[in-house]
Amino acid sequence: MNPPNQDAHLYVQSHVMHNARQLQYIRSCFAAIAGSAAGILGLTNLSGFLFYALSWTILSTLLIARTSRLNKYFIQGYKDILFDGVLGGLLSYILFHTLLYGLVHLYQ
Results as ranks from 00 to 15, higher is better:
A8T: 02
G88W: 11
S28N: 12
Q76A: 14
L99M: 12
L103C: 11
Y25R: 14
G88K: 07
F96M: 06
L103A: 06
L59C: 07
S60P: 00
S60C: 15
I26M: 08
A37F: 05
G102M: 04
K79S: 13
L62R: 11
Y52S: 01
Q24C: 08
F30N: 02
S68Q: 14
R69I: 04
N71A: 07
L95R: 03
L87C: 10
I33C: 07
C29F: 09
G35Y: 00
L41W: 05
S14W: 07
Y101Q: 02
A53D: 03
T57H: 07
A31G: 03
Y101C: 01
D7S: 05
D7I: 06
I26L: 14
H9I: 06
D80P: 00
H97S: 02
I64P: 00
L63F: 07
A53Q: 05
K79E: 11
K72S: 13
T98A: 10
F51E: 01
F30H: 12
Q13R: 13
Q108L: 08
P4D: 05
A65I: 12
P3L: 06
L90F: 15
L10C: 05
G102F: 02
Q6D: 11
G88N: 12
N71Y: 13
S68T: 08
P4R: 08
T57I: 04
Y11F: 15
P3M: 05
L10R: 09
H15L: 14
L91G: 06
I58A: 15
V12P: 01
R21L: 14
L63A: 04
F96I: 03
G89K: 01
G42H: 02
D7Y: 12
L103I: 11
L23A: 10
L46T: 13
C29E: 03
I81E: 00
N45R: 09
Y101T: 01
V12S: 10
P4T: 07
I40E: 01
P3F: 07
A53S: 14
G88P: 01
I64C: 06
